[in-house]
Amino acid sequence: MAATLASADPVLADFAEQVGAEGPVAVEGGRTRWLVGGAPPPDVRTVRAPAGIVEYAPEEMTVRVRAGTTVAELDAELSSRGQRTPLPDRGGTVGGALAVGENHPGLLGRGRVRSSLLQVRYVSADGVLVNGGGPTVKNVTGFDLPRLMVGSLGTLGLLAEVILRTEPNPAVSQWVVSDDADPFAVRHVLLRPGAVLWDGGRTWALLEGQADDVASERAAIAVHGTFTDGDGWPELPPHRWSLTPSGLRDIGAHATGRFVAVVGAGLVFAAEPQPSRILDPAARTVGERLKRNFDPDGRLNPGRDPAAR
């Protein structure tokens, strides 16, 4: 393939030109997670990725979308055909959601953000468009640049366009709430729940599937507590903790303040921030080499570090 990607799509070529090959540059989406992993210098030049849904193929369960598209716009398009992705909508963009890599609180049902990215097109530190992965739902052709980009905070390349895997919405989604249930037992009973949340007292469960199955799962968890109809997601505290699923059993040992935990995943939304985590030293060394190999001058999203979030 002799032609470069830039020549194939003028919109992406224009973005690559804006990024250029010199000087610090930060990419701006919805600024909803601007401080994750450190803030860029206040006077840094910023660029915006192009927006728009390029090609949606519901029958392939894939969507090609430019990184500057809002998650809300993507969700609206997908839901018109009864589909969804794992990306959380917090007012931000598709590129932002992927670069930050944080999961939807409904990750038990929707899956993880990192598994949804099939193909990535990004602008390198040299100002060149690079393509990784491929358009099919299954692909092991070469090294996995899409996985590398998820959660990289734009430090290795600036996302321009992606192909995401979509999933059909469940036929029925039903929230139920209990103030006396054992959330761990509830999670164990449910086969593929949309979510099981717990704030130390109350348990919320999002039951998903065919109506009769939702009814029978509701009957099955009634053994573990008294459930009433719920009306949606509880308010989630601002800070994000990453624990192991089993570690939630000892959550009282942590200074979380008010919390809502995603049972079965170990993700916790808490009033207080999580103390700094320490990355494995040898993994940190590989990460530092990645940064040097992809962005030797440190020009992409300076000040940000995926190991310092």
């Binding site: 998820v150 290795l156 990453s242 699923p245 170990g266 990355l279 993994a283 995926p306 190991a307």
Partner: peptide
């Protein structure tokens, strides 16, 4: 094993 491990997805 935690929900969202630190660093690049090595």
């Amino acid at each position: 094993l935690d929900a969202e491990p630190l660093g690049y997805d090595l």
